[in-house]
Amino acid sequence: MSTETLAEIARAERGTSLWADAWLRLRRNKLALIGFAVLSLFVVIALLTPWIAPYSYQAQNLELGASPPSAQHWLGTDIFGRDLLTQILYGGRISLAVGFVATAVALLIGVTWGAIAGYAGGRVDAVMMRLVDILYALPFMIFIVLLTVVFGRNLLLLFLAIGAVEWLTMARIMRGQIQSLRQQEFVEAAISLGLSPATLIRRHLVPNALGPIIVYTTLTIPSVMLLEAFLSFLGLGVQPPQTSWGLLISYGAETMEEYPWLLVFPGLALTLTLFCLNFLGDGLRDALDVRGARD
């Protein structure tokens, strides 16, 4: 009997879940798909850089100096005769790493914090969100500058500092989600079934809060990358001999009158990446029907 019913269930028409629906909508969004493809390519390239870079990272050719794009150096060379393509590839590793790692930091802290505040409610929520409010009002850009001055420029600090700024919005979004979900009747129904809090969170709250979190994560990465580039441009972020797109743009800006390609190509790399991320984020937002994930 039970095998019979199982067979019946297996035969039953399969429904389309909201995730499948979203995927269908996303697939219709060409820009988002292109964004995703280009981005994936960049990530793969960044991972393989040490093996595929045309020149060694350190190799200088002072005789050559700054030269425009040519057959040997597709994107030209900088004033030390270093291959610009190689520089951009290595810079991309750092820029993307900062983008992903700092966003992961923000995601981890923000989602945990927001979920706890939203689920606990009452006084715990009030205290936790009050803290977020206070931190929100702090001028963080200035603080990051200050931090780099105090602790010197190092990559780990950059990850932490940027992650520490971005988690606030993540926490707010997560809390808002959990709070509005908690008032939904299906959560009340789950409580009245006698579900334990852990199961309630796992089965009913998290899957429904995931959409906005995914969207916001996608949109946080570009703003983090922008922040890193900003600091590096000011000379407060990544330090030589390491490089990042922000740093390359900053060097390029100094010599743009004579050697404009040194500004244009790193700028293109950064802008293109940000484009892809934003298109993907917008596409996901539309596909998952998330409103006001970034107000």
Binding site: Q184, F186, A189, R203, P207, N208
Partner: peptide, 10 residues
């Protein structure tokens, strides 16, 4: 509102 939108009837 009373049904979890991410769960099948099953």
């Amino acid at each position: 509102a009373s049904l979890n939108p991410r769960m099948t009837v099953y």
